[in-house]
Nucleic acid binder design. Structure first.
Lengths: 112, 112
DNA sequence: ATATATACATAATTTTCTTATGCATAATAA
DNA sequence: TTATTATGCATAAGAAAATTATGTATATAT
């Protein structure tokens, strides 16, 4: 909600990171997971999420597997081999970005 | 350079934060300060910076003062009273965002 | 019956960048 | 001395990445 306008550019990396640690996830599950991890701070909108998933798939970073659970459709996404390698790079970049931001907004913070 | 695509949405807050702690700064100075603070990681482009400064001014958050130094033009920006109040809010939001990102990419990090 | 949760999708629009360009002066390197 | 780099501003065109608004459909809770 309040911070929803701030995660621009990092959504793709968030998706990759979650898939890396969870193995496979479906779209709705990702939105709920992020909400839980951030105590409601980051709300990923569907209009951002689904196009992002489709793009990552088109880029060859994700594979899809359709399932039907409780008569409802689910599309499970998981990292391809290329996707796993990309995830490492993008995560490193995002972590560096976070450190840079901290150096600006609060140089006193220490990160361990 | 490498991370330049990641700071979308946070540039305004960075500007406000720097002006809050430095009192007044001119555009070029801001780009150099950010570069120094982030060891070259974040490069603020002029095409992003100047429109952002103009917009913040139009919103009433910044005041401008033109100076001529070494026969070159400088536009010093500083926070208005409204700008100072906004800075507090936006900084809090950005810090919360950074914490949220950390909860996702590295839940083991502790921040002090 | 109605609202909320689950689950996907896309189109229109807006925001916010990047890239490219332009002007001008000062300092430094070739 | 001439070319490049640094300093300093600005804006236009285009791309990227969101938001907002829809749309479809099933399940569950009130």
């Amino acid at each position: 909600m309040s911070n929803s306008k701030l995660y621009k550019g990092s959504l793709n990396t968030i998706i990759l990171k979650l898939l890396d640690e969870q193995g496979k996830m479906y779209g709705y599950e990702i939105t709920q997971k992020v909400k839980a991890l951030t105590k409601g701070e980051l709300q990923i909108t569907e209009g951002a999420l689904y196009p992002a998933l489709h793009k990552l798939e088109a880029e060859g970073l994700l594979d899809v597997e359709v399932a039907k659970v409780d008569n409802r459709l689910r599309k499970y996404y998981k990292l391809t081999e290329v996707g796993e390698k990309e995830t490492i790079n993008r995560l490193a970049e995002l972590e560096e970005f976070i450190r840079s931001m901290q150096n600006i907004v609060n140089p006193n913070w220490s990160i361990n």
